[in-house]
């Protein structure tokens, strides 16, 4: 049976169908779950997709985190279920305190929309289990508030516990320690600013996202 991925959609989310396409192209099942639903419908993994949830009003993710579906996502994460937040989804996960730190405006005040080389820093996460440390993945970024920041204590903890999952080879936004993505203590919740779902087809210029979505499906498959 194919692993089933719930793709969370808030008002203003706009990357949900890209995630559905990437997941199904790699043999998984995907189902959109709307923000006001209280159940994930028995999913084996969750992706909080990118976009501008609730218009990014107040702060990106600030309002989305109080959506009914986030209670279900939080519970699923607490049970060890694989949860990945991409771009705006990463912002939502930090606001929901499922991941530490915050995403501030890009250094230089530029909206960054370009390909980025990511260096896999840890293969011990639900998004990188099938990659090797040191692999360079070419994945697009598309954000204005992707400059990861956290307290020095949190940064020391992330480094010490091998929780920095991917780093930028050439830092595009000012993120501390070149961080592009991190995971939680349980390693089952990952947030990253780049969009692996947009790098799963030759037509899009890179298939390097397949190893990430494939890793997620493998983690999800282990729960089927």
């Amino acid at each position: 049976m194919a692993a089933k991925v719930a793709v969370v959609r808030f008002p203003g989310t706009n990357c949900e169908f890209d995630v559905v396409e990437a997941v199904t192209s790699l043999g998984g099942q995907a189902e959109i779950v709307f923000h006001d639903q209280t159940s994930l419908g028995g999913a084996d993994a969750v992706v909080v997709a990118g976009g501008f949830a609730h218009g990014d009003y107040l702060r990106p993710g600030a309002i989305a985190r109080f959506s009914p579906v986030m209670a279900a996502v939080t519970e699923f994460a607490a049970e060890g279920g694989p949860v990945v937040g991409i771009c705006n989804g990463f912002q939502v996960l930090t606001e929901a305190h499922l991941l530490p730190g915050a995403l501030q405006k890009n250094a230089g005040l530029k909206f960054r929309c370009q390909m980025a080389d990511l260096v896999v820093a840890s293969s011990d996460s639900v998004l990188t289990s099938e990659a090797q440390v040191g692999d360079v993945l070419r994945i697009p970024i598309n954000h204005f508030e992707g400059n990861y920041t956290c307290s020095p204590e949190t940064l020391a903890e992330l480094r010490g516990d091998d929780r920095i999952v991917v780093r930028y080879a050439d830092n595009p936004n000012g993120s501390v320690d070149d961080i592009a993505g991190i995971c939680n203590e349980g390693r089952n919740v990952v947030g990253l600013m780049p969009h692996p779902e947009r790098a799963c087809n030759e037509l899009l210029g890179s298939v390097d996202g397949q190893v990430m979505i494939g890793s997620l499906l493998a983690s999800a498959g282990a729960r089927v």
Binding site: Q104, K105, N106, A107, G108, L109, N147, T149, G174
Partner: peptide, 13 residues
């Protein structure tokens, strides 16, 4: 307000 030490690219611009 942004906390001290947090980048304020709008203010700088």
């Amino acid at each position: 307000r942004l906390r001290p030490g947090i980048a304020d690219p709008q203010g700088a611009t």
